[in-house]
């Protein structure tokens, strides 16, 4: 199966990436080429094979529930596009 321009628009919306109509057409061809390439995986028999999420099987570590970081809010917000009074500013979401 291959993607059409509506599929590409849906994926771009999910990914929060704006695509122009011209970009949509080119992207559609490129994504289909890549999906065509990875389609060969479907032919492989993987019955009973455990999926491998990580290269080395280790158990997730836990740490004591105590404060381990210092407050560096000012330093971290210095690199933000728009802040005020310690808050990140974004377009209004509640009218």
């Amino acid at each position: 199966m291959s993607l059409n321009s509506q599929d590409v628009s849906r994926i771009a919306r999910l990914a929060r990436v704006e695509l122009s109509a011209a970009e949509n057409a080119a992207t559609c061809d490129q994504l289909n080429a890549i999906l065509g390439f990875i389609a060969q995986l479907q032919a492989v028999d993987t019955d009973g094979i455990e999926p491998m999420a990580h290269a080395v099987d280790v158990v997730q570590r836990l740490r004591p529930d105590v404060v381990s970081e210092t407050d560096r809010r000012d330093a971290f917000q210095a690199v933000a596009p728009d802040v005020e009074a310690g808050l990140y500013l974004v377009p209004r979401v509640i009218e």
Binding site: R13, R16, V79, Y88
Partner: peptide, 18 residues
């Protein structure tokens, strides 16, 4: 929002992301 580039012009929040 937190770091890096932000588009100079946008409408709502989703439009800003996109």
């Amino acid at each position: 929002v937190r770091y890096g580039y932000r588009a100079p012009e946008y409408g709502d929040l989703n439009d800003m992301y996109a």
